[in-house]
Design a protein around this nucleic acid. Structure first.
Lengths: 126, 126
DNA sequence: CTGGATCCTATCCGATACTG
DNA sequence: CAGTATCGGATAGGATCCAG
């Protein structure tokens, strides 16, 4: 026995294609941050940009379009001057908040451990 | 109130720097896959390469060195011919398995939903 | 305000070749 | 087996300008 954690065991040992989806969706610089920023409900474009912080307009658009295409985010336009566009998580998208929140909780718990190791590290291997 | 899910609430609304760590570690193409592939215990370099699947030697080395520097993976060399190098999760690294497993579980649950939407999607917005 | 279009650069990353 | 070094194409991503 190598680990006592209650792990999810999909296949024998390899990473199957269903699991890959999770890494596909999350292994992007901005997408998970955008989802996380939408956890409280609908947000508008420039609000999102400020919330996420450091994302360019181009990348935010790209992430949002991708999330829309995956059915995780819904785009709701209110015709007005100036135009109002609100993005919100779909029910499916909301289910992603659970894994992401667990991840954020992990970071809160182990932030210092990793930071300390990074600072001291580098000298670990020639 | 916008959502009834039991969400982790770090700050007012923005994504704080501690949370960023989580996205930093995970928002990489290979790193989370490598951690996940190590869930059962120590693996050797080429074993890992086969397990992860599709990763080049260069990228695997890079990910492993980074994980080492972050204190998430330990590199254990057994002097022998041919040389034996085993990678295994540190206790700290093992804690990452929980978020990753939750993520994988999510993918198992919602794989078809996302796939279906991707196939039908694209026509959603002009 | 909400973006699309364009240009340009930094980096990612795979292929190949080579070392111990 | 377990890597490192280098090259070169692909892609990510920022800056800027412009439109509805």
């Amino acid at each position: 026995m190598e680990t006592t954690l209650p792990l999810y065991e999909p296949d024998v040992l390899n990473v199957n294609c269903r699991s890959r989806l999770a890494f596909d969706v999350v292994s992007d610089k901005w997408t998970p941050l955008v989802v996380y920023a939408l956890r409280r409900g609908g947000r508008r474009y420039n609000q999102l940009r400020r919330d996420v912080g450091g994302v360019s307009a181009k990348m935010l658009s790209q992430s949002l379009r991708r999330l829309e295409a995956d059915g995780l985010v819904e785009r709701r336009v209110t015709p007005a001057v100036p135009p109002e566009v609100e993005y919100r998580l779909t029910p499916l998208g909301s289910t992603l908040l659970t894994p992401i929140s667990v991840l954020v909780a992990w970071a809160e718990d182990h932030y210092l451990d990793v930071e300390r190791h990074r600072a001291a590290g580098g000298a670990t291997r020639p």
